[in-house]
Design a protein around this nucleic acid. Structure first.
Lengths: 338, 338
DNA sequence: GTGCGTGATGTAACCGGTTACATCAAGCCG
DNA sequence: CGGCTTGATGTAACCGGTTACATCACGCAC
């Protein structure tokens, strides 16, 4: 055995008086080893405390046993849950998970490139990497895009547009609101953008004009608070506000009452994502439930499946689009009774 | 070049008409290459689109360029922020981050073992892995324990006990509350436990008995809601409730007013962690700010530093204890004016 | 007894890098 | 001119596994 460090196949081979091939056969449970030999080798393995090096295995199999996930960062419950979905599938398959947060850094492409070189497959949140770049990379390895559409890549997403349309339609038809606005910047990633489009779809369906452009803010609660103050100061509250996510809605709900405006009395509000706090806020928040965990899990499953067995090539995934169901969760903040 | 896949050093060597050693010298920017040769090799590298394989590099240097982080899961903002701290340090160093969620699975030890084999160093959240096991593993590689104490391992933590004592003392001295209870199960990980101990320290300082044992619940908002209902049903609200984290406090704050009990009028409440929603809730939540991101970043820095340069051995870290500052954030929920 | 099939095991190449050491040519000096 | 130094480059071993193929002993059939 090397002076320091773990024993290798060759150490075991020497110790048991066999060849490395035989040791390898034992560790891989290859049946073509005579029982007495097997026992002798196993004894040496136990005696020296040998476990095959992950590096050696990776080298031989050309498999990293690692799945990469690329997202903007881990801020907010959405991404955390997504990662949990990916992670749960990965651990069951004995695969490690490499997390890369791009934080919209300019050199994110290079980081993704690097990550791609140490993983068997990639799960990428939409909007975090250039699509051309990903499409090229997808020639080499399985890549699954989450929460985005693409005609060149495999995507897993929810139909945020349809969901936004559904919940907006509820505001229009069940409550008769006519002056509606959208909170959240639709210029960034695919998710907020499609939600905004669904919001506009519903308005268009009813021949109603938007009561003002989207309120372009980031996606954290503080921005919701800022938006609430701005709306209040303008003296011109819409009938209802559709928020790009629940955090924004919480920010508004926490601020508006303090300014003397009640929810949903003076303005109704709906969120998106069904945050774990949504059912506890007062009023309880009407929102859209997304199977975020499933989104991650499904993406991971597709990616790992395409990775295939050690022998096989890592298949490039054909373009495909898997759409998971959303569900409008009607609570009180839209104006419905408890 | 192999029929499929990326070119290797040997492909470049053949293409440029030099040896692999020279190619290696060029990629590593070794100055001992004559300029004309360097240019010729570089031209081949560009022509074939060569980048050194991460696997080959790992094998040669015995470094994975990967940092592992072990935690129960990614539920709640605390862990997400911790990972972000780790991740930010890692990407700056060109190091990948491997996340392992144990979810308190019985076979977590084996997963950690595996993770340890594919990483250069480990950051472990306290309570997720057996300390004996970690101590042994720490002979082999740098391990940093987060949010825990140990006399055998390097730890990075905040003094949750002192912080809990401080905020509890505020409840006792500034407001004169006498009947205090703690919400959250102190039987699990080190963090909740030390918070509970600090809570009891403050009571002991003032010669006051706990108004009832700790309310043993999990750490999500729903449990806070359950606890609120239980307290209300018992008809015996304490003067003040110290919660193991902010989510629990949110759960209580969302539920109690609906039962006709006001906060802080009928019962004061304080949380822990300074969640991003804490300043927005109504009343705003008095809590303890923890430098969670810094916790992760510091742990990662220590771990990576111990990993050392490619040549050097991965040093086992000597036992050490780094304590980061907490800060009580006094808001309204304890009874203080806005 | 010879030839052949079969099962167990060993040998050596391979995966993709790095690097100690060998080699070699050129320049310099006495 | 011979020997030494120096700088550039090549050779081959090594990191730790797997595996195609070779080898060998044994048993069986003819």
């Amino acid at each position: 055995m090397a002076a320091s460090g773990r024993p290798t196949v060759r150490d075991i081979a020497k110790h048991a008086g066999v060849s490395v091939a035989t040791v390898s056969r034992v560790t891989r449970q290859d049946p073509k080893v005579a029982p007495p030999t097997r026992e002798r080798v196993q004894a040496s393995i136990d005696a020296l405390g040998y476990t095959p090096s992950a590096l050696g295995l990776s080298l031989a199999y050309q498999r990293y046993h690692t799945l990469g996930i690329v997202l903007p960062g881990l801020g907010g419950p959405y991404f955390a849950e997504l990662v949990q979905g990916v992670e749960s599938v990965a651990v069951d398959a004995g695969i490690a998970v490499n997390v890369l947060g791009t934080h919209f850094r300019p050199d994110a492409g290079r980081s993704v490139q690097q990550l791609a070189q140490r993983t068997d497959a990639l799960v990428v949140q939409g909007g975090t990497a250039d699509e051309d770049f990903l499409a090229e990379l997808a020639q080499t390895m399985p890549i699954v895009l989450v929460a985005a559409t693409s005609d060149r890549l495999t995507t897993v997403r929810t139909d945020g547009r349809a969901a936004a349309r559904e919940v907006t339609t509820h505001l229009l038809e069940a409550h008769g609101y006519r002056r509606l606005r959208f909170l959240g910047s639709p210029n960034g990633s695919p998710d907020p953008t499609s939600r905004y489009l669904g919001f506009r779809d519903a308005l268009a369906d009813h021949g109603i004009a938007e009561a003002g452009g989207p309120l372009e803010y980031g996606f954290e609660a503080e921005y919701g608070a800022m938006a609430a103050r701005e709306l209040h100061a303008s003296g011109d509250l819409p009938d209802a506000l559709v928020c790009a996510n629940d955090e924004l809605a919480f920010g508004v709900m926490a601020t508006l009452p303090g300014l003397g405006r009640s929810i949903p009395g003076d303005m109704a509000i709906v969120g998106f994502d069904d945050n774990s706090l949504a059912g506890l806020a007062s009023p309880t928040l009407t929102t859209v439930h997304q199977p975020t965990f499933e989104l991650g899990a499904t993406a991971a499953r597709i990616a790992l499946e395409a990775t295939g067995e050690p022998g096989a090539a890592r298949l490039p995934l054909p373009p495909d689009d898997r759409v998971l169901e959303t569900r409008a969760v009607i609570r009180e903040s839209c104006g419905c009774p408890a």
